[in-house]
């Protein structure tokens, strides 16, 4: 049972983490990103569509599942460019833009999935079959008592996410781009005075945010149901926002927050199973991560330090 909690916890926590990391890019650059939910959905939709087309012409064994992550990233970035145009180029209100992007994503992907299934695959369905993502275990390490769960039966994408986490740390804290990005979230005027284009930096940050959310969405599609369907919109984007806020917009604390959410969820799941609850009560234990969100919000809101210029529209002319 403990192994199950760990395995399921990680397979939820890490996709959540990569979405939260996407949010960090955007928010540290000063753009409030409530659009994560929409971005992850659209990314997963693109990845799912790609897999559906490939599997209709190849046999399952030949289909490159890893490629679907790249397609999802591109899809997420593409959709994020719409968000970036709204709130960076046209300087629209970031909260409203984010909400619009979310609503549009749910409606658009739902509509397109049905239409494409109808017209290309001749089946009335709101799902794309995307196949199975490989799981592996590390020999020997997996047999360690208790901790073995961290090394057994995990999705390969979990490793990829950890890799992206390392790259993010390097990019944000060690490179010029990262310095500029963080400076934009604190005092865009100073960035402008240093001869750096604030809007360019922010646009890139939002695109990266979309790409990472897309990957996260695709991972969720694999881990939840092996298909793309509207169930991918289960609130992970919002949970990711909560995680990055508890994590104080910093990478490692956000990682910890995601792990807490992941394990709370898998533990809730296991408890439900152990108590042999009926499915209607099962839903109740599944609310555990969200109840936890509320509690953490109460305790941590005081110590939180948001980027100073978060949500601030930068207008060059205004001094």
């Amino acid at each position: 049972m403990l192994n199950n909690i760990i395995i399921d916890g990680l397979s939820f926590a890490l996709p959540l983490l990569i979405i939260a990391i996407g949010g960090i890019y955007s928010e540290r650059s000063g753009i409030t990103n409530l659009a994560l939910e929409g971005l992850l959905g659209f990314g997963a939709f693109c990845g799912g569509l790609f897999m559906a087309f490939l599997s209709s012409s190849f046999t399952a064994a030949q289909v490159p599942v890893y490629l679907s992550l790249i397609v999802a990233a591109l899809g997420g970035a593409l959709y994020a460019s719409l968000f970036a145009v709204l709130c960076v180029v046209f300087k629209a209100n970031q909260v409203i833009s984010g909400v619009v992007i979310n609503i549009l994503s749910v409606a658009l992907t739902g509509f397109l999935t049905r239409q494409i299934n109808q017209n290309f695959f001749n089946q009335p369905s709101d799902k794309f079959q995307i196949g199975v993502f490989p799981r592996v275990s590390v020999p020997f390490l997996k047999d360690i008592p208790v901790l073995g769960g961290f090394f057994s039966n995990f999705y390969v994408f979990e490793v990829i996410i950890l890799l992206l986490l390392a790259i993010t740390w390097y990019l944000l804290y060690k490179t010029r781009f990262g310095m500029h990005l963080r400076a934009c979230g604190d005092n865009p005027q100073s960035v402008d005075a240093a001869g750096i284009e604030v809007n360019q930096v922010r646009f890139k940050a939002v695109l990266i945010s979309g790409a990472l959310s897309g990957i996260g969405g695709m991972c969720f599609a694999y881990s939840i149901s092996a298909n793309f369907s509207p169930t991918v919109y289960m609130g992970a984007g919002f949970l990711a926002i909560a995680a990055l806020i508890f994590g104080n917009w910093r990478i490692m604390p956000t990682f910890v927050a995601c792990l807490i959410f992941g394990f709370a969820r898998s533990a809730g799941n296991e408890i439900g199973k152990a108590m042999k609850l009926s499915s209607s009560f099962f839903d109740l234990t599944m609310t555990l991560p969200y109840v936890l969100t509320l509690l953490l919000l109460i305790f941590f809101s005081d110590t939180n330090k948001a980027p100073r210029a978060l949500g601030e529209i930068y207008d060059k002319g205004k001094r």
Partner: peptide, 26 residues
Amino acid sequence: KLVENFTITENIVLGIEPQKSVLGLP
């Protein structure tokens, strides 16, 4: 025009940051 959560050095070099290479990465 200063970035509050940066150090003094980071603020001074902002925009013309000196770089070095570690493991081939700037």
